[in-house]
Design a protein around this nucleic acid. Structure first.
Length: 357
DNA sequence: GATGCGTGGGG
DNA sequence: TCCCCAAGCAT
């Protein structure tokens, strides 16, 4: 019953998305990675860029990490890009360039978990593996009235078992797409349009007025506060840049020299820190501009960032290889966190320092 | 099993 | 302004 309604609905209402018009596992893999925790609208341009610039696994495997991160810039969750490249190289070097054809092999790949492995194996190879993503959790919890929290082991098991049962005797690719598309378009998180829903009579949540209460999540993420001060050191032509560590936020992306403070108060006293001394005082630098505080929200952190544009007569010498001195014009070749892109955009790409005002 | 990991849209 | 959440995964 549910499946009949669902499949009829899908045939009429589904979107025409580029990764649905292919059986190429590489393109399906790429789309699945891009769309993890990311809306279609946000990922579409990146999908087009990547398929155009890297038309095959082998083409992608030849790229450098810095380059792929630059292409991924602005999309977030940058470990996805690094794992994508890692796996492309792995396939090129160890799997004769061929994407594995079975779920059991696909799930071994870095950056591919239970969801993506099910999606790729079913979409590309018609393997009967049920996808369970956020859309599926939401739809199943409402239609079948399941209140087990979806972010627990018990919940994952229960929903997966139900999804595994529903996909039986269906065309795997179409059934999985239908399940997700229904959640994305019809059974939306907020204000779902139950009036136009094809299955109100069989929907438990609708019958019992529980649409707003399902699905259930048990955990709530707490956001920690962080205080950043960025030093934009320039002699008018050159800029100081750092590569971020391989762990933590914005791993392996680039940024200006950063002073992190433990509190708002400490952030006010940034000009008393050691790094300020070595980069500003020792270089006889002048602060040409101090920005207002930027508030940058991540899913789990709230960053307050100040930017200091400092003019020096002579660029300071550097101690570690994580630091580099670049020409101002080269800045757009480096992958930067969105916070810095936002700042640069506001500052009209550092015109003040360029013009030596 | 809990935590860390981005960015943007919408109510 | 605040909160939730969006085709999850690695550690």
């Amino acid at each position: 019953m549910f499946k009949n309604y669902l499949h009829s609905w899908y045939l009429i209402n589904h979107r025409d998305l580029p990764w649905r018009n292919t059986k190429n596992p590489y393109k399906i893999w790429l789309s699945e990675v891009i769309l993890q925790q990311t809306r279609v609208d946000q990922g579409m341009d990146y999908y087009n860029k990547f398929t155009s610039k890297y038309p095959s696994i082998l083409a992608l495997a030849k790229a450098s990490e810095d380059e792929v991160l630059k292409d991924w810039e602005g999309l977030g969750y940058y470990s996805r890009a690094r794992n994508l490249l890692f796996t492309a190289k792995h396939i090129a070097q160890n799997l004769k360039g061929e994407f594995p054809r079975h779920y059991s092999e696909i799930i071994k790949l870095k950056g591919i978990g239970p969801y993506a492995a099910a999606a790729i194996s079913s979409f590309a190879f018609e393997e009967e593996k049920a996808v369970v993503d956020g859309n599926v959790y939401r739809t199943l919890s409402r239609v079948f009235g399941i209140s087990t929290p979806i972010d627990t082991t018990a919940g994952k098991k229960e929903f997966q078992a139900l999804a595994d049962d529903l996909i039986k005797n269906q065309k795997p690719s179409v059934h999985n797409q239908a399940m997700m598309e229904f959640g994305a378009l019809q059974c939306t998180p907020k204000n779902p349009d139950c009036q136009s829903c094809p299955l109100p009579t069989i929907c438990f949540a609708y019958e019992h007025d529980l649409i707003g209460d399902l699905p259930v999540k048990s955990k709530k993420v707490k956001q920690s506060k962080r205080h950043f001060s960025y030093l934009i050191i320039s002699d008018g032509k050159k800029l100081l840049l750092n590569k971020r560590p391989e762990k933590g936020i914005w791993a392996n992306l680039f940024e200006f020299p950063l002073i992190e403070s433990s509190s708002e108060l400490e952030q006010e006293k940034v000009q008393q820190t050691e790094l300020w001394n070595s980069l500003v005082i020792a270089s006889k630098g002048t602060v040409k501009f101090k920005s207002d505080s930027y508030r940058h929200i991540l899913s789990h952190q709230i960053i307050t960032a100040d930017f200091y544009e400092v003019k020096v007569d002579k660029m300071p010498t550097l101690s570690t290889t994580k630091n580099l001195i670049i020409n101002k014009s080269e800045l757009n070749q480096f992958a930067l966190p969105k916070l810095l892109l936002n700042y640069l955009s506001d500052r009209d790409d550092l015109l003040s320092l360029l013009n030596d005002n």
